[in-house]
Computed example of a mutant assay.
Amino acid sequence: MSAPKRVERPLSPFMIGPYYRPQMTSISSIMVRITGIATLGTVFLVVAWLLAAATSADAFAVVNGLLTSIVGDILMTAAAWAIWYHVLGRLRHLIWDLGYGVNVKANETMGMIMFIGATVLTVVTVLVV
């Protein structure tokens, strides 16, 4: 009796590229995790700003100067996008927990809505604030 023929294929979809085509569902899921970590970084910046304000005028001037500069504006705009994206991702999970939108087409649509919605909400946030 001969040995069974072994099929060479990847064991999991972590090999994005030649073996695995990224899909909207996987990209949006990964982005929710990344934006969660980015939001934590934003919290550290805001806490540093508050601590500097409580510590001394010189410390506050340094941190406030960073956060109100062009670099700070870019960081805070990116943080707003990350927060909105993460909020929409959590909303998507709530919809799934209620038993709705669990098919592939609905997941792809919700993924696109998350990207577009986070961008629109960030623009509105920047314009209002």
Rank of each mutant, 00 (worst) to 15 (best):
T55C: 03
V129C: 00
N103W: 14
Y100W: 15
S69N: 02
R6T: 06
S56D: 13
R9Y: 09
D97V: 10
A57R: 14
L88I: 15
Y85F: 15
V46F: 08
I30T: 11
R33L: 13
P10Q: 12
A52R: 03
T25R: 06
A53S: 06
I37G: 04
S28D: 05
S56G: 10
F115D: 00
T122D: 02
V126Q: 08
M15G: 04
T125N: 05
K5E: 02
R21H: 09
F44S: 02
H93I: 09
A59M: 11
A52C: 03
M110H: 01
K105W: 12
A38C: 08
L75Q: 05
R33K: 06
I16V: 12
A79I: 13
G65Q: 04
V129Y: 05
V32S: 10
Y100M: 13
M15Y: 13
V62R: 12
P4A: 04
Y20C: 01
L51I: 14
P10G: 03
G117V: 06
K5P: 00
L94T: 13
V104S: 08
T77F: 01
T109M: 11
V124C: 01
W96S: 05
G65D: 06
S28W: 02
I16Y: 13
P4H: 01
P13I: 08
G17H: 11
F60E: 09
M24A: 07
Y100C: 03
G111Q: 03
A106V: 12
T77I: 11
I30H: 05
L75E: 08
G65M: 07
S69Y: 07
G41Q: 10
L11T: 11
L45C: 07
V7P: 00
T119V: 10
A82M: 06
T25K: 11
V32N: 10
A80I: 07
I34N: 01
A59H: 11
R90C: 11
A48C: 09
R9A: 12
S2C: 01
V129A: 07
Q23E: 12
A38R: 03
Y20Q: 08
A78K: 00
A82P: 03
A118M: 11
L66H: 00
P18G: 09
R21A: 07
V129K: 06
L88K: 10
F14V: 15
A82H: 02
V63F: 09
I95E: 05
